[in-house]
């Protein structure tokens, strides 16, 4: 059992349904050339397309597991790529799934999260709002002319996340098809956020009074959180 088993199942179900509907394109990270890494400032007038603009909907999800549900190097895209849409703005979901051996969930979370924050590509500006699980990206016109696509972004995430010592496989899903499709993943995103918050509270506050804890319902539903609690409470008692 892992922290995010239910959310991973939900994402995989979403992907299966999209596949059955013929709406998924797949790329392999390991056969994708690297896009130049660089932190970019992309102003509106230089922007070809925006993903997850605050006026639309966006979602960012980072899940990790010790199980085998993650297909290493797979990048799935549901919806148009950045160079294919005639629109100036698209809704956006980014789901990063990491397989590995995560003995210390808190340290693993921080290492994986930092790897995500540190993934920056030339001509692609990304803004993240962790508290809202939202994401706002801009693709520069120049980058698009040079052939930038979400495949390069996915491959960069795979490469960077696999540099985290405990990670052994990374799978990426991007959704740009519609507001409804992005919203379909919002339940999993909200649950994942609560799980992470509950875990952070345990590690940072070292308070284990379940009677007064706002996350009691989360821990009741996620066996792995109970294990973390027992481990930390045991350490505190020593």
């Amino acid at each position: 059992m892992g922290l995010f088993d239910e959310q991973l199942t939900e994402v995989k179900r979403f992907l299966s349904e999209a596949r059955r509907a013929g709406g998924v394109r797949e790329f392999r990270a390991f056969s994708t050339p690297a896009w130049p890494a660089e932190s970019s400032l992309v102003l509106e007038e230089d922007t070809a397309i925006e993903l997850g603009n605050p006026q639309t909907v966006s979602l960012s999800l980072l899940l990790w597991t010790g199980g085998h549900a993650v297909e290493d190097g797979l990048i799935s895209l549901v919806g148009p790529d950045v160079g294919e849409s005639g629109e100036l703005s698209l809704p956006f979901a980014q789901v990063l799934m990491v397989r590995g051996s995560f003995e210390d969930e808190y340290e693993s979370y921080q290492a994986l999260r930092d790897a995500v924050y540190d993934t920056r590509l030339s001509g692609f500006m990304v803004r993240t709002r962790p508290s809202k699980h939202s994401l706002w990206c801009r693709v520069a016109r120049e980058a698009l002319e040079q052939g930038f696509s979400l495949r390069y972004l996915g491959a960069a995430f795979v490469k960077r996340l696999k540099e985290v010592p405990s990670a052994s496989g990374v799978e990426v899903l991007f959704v740009t098809s519609s507001l409804d499709d992005v919203e379909r993943l919002s339940g999993a995103a909200a649950e994942a956020r609560r799980i992470i918050e509950a875990m952070m509270k345990m590690y940072e506050e070292k308070s284990f009074d379940c009677e007064t804890c706002e996350y009691r319902d989360v821990c009741d539903g996620v066996m792995e959180l109970k294990k973390i609690r027992e481990k930390l409470a045991g350490e505190k008692a020593v």
């Binding site: 102003l43 509106e44 999260r113 924050y117 803004r127 962790p130 508290s131 939202s134 952070m200």
Partner: peptide, 23 residues
């Protein structure tokens, strides 16, 4: 709310500053 560490706050700020820019 106390749910964010410094790194999270820093990236939140990056997002909010971008929202605050009028271009």
């Amino acid at each position: 709310e106390g749910k964010r560490d410094e790194r999270d706050l820093a990236v939140s700020l990056d997002y909010l500053l971008a929202e605050a820019l009028t271009e």
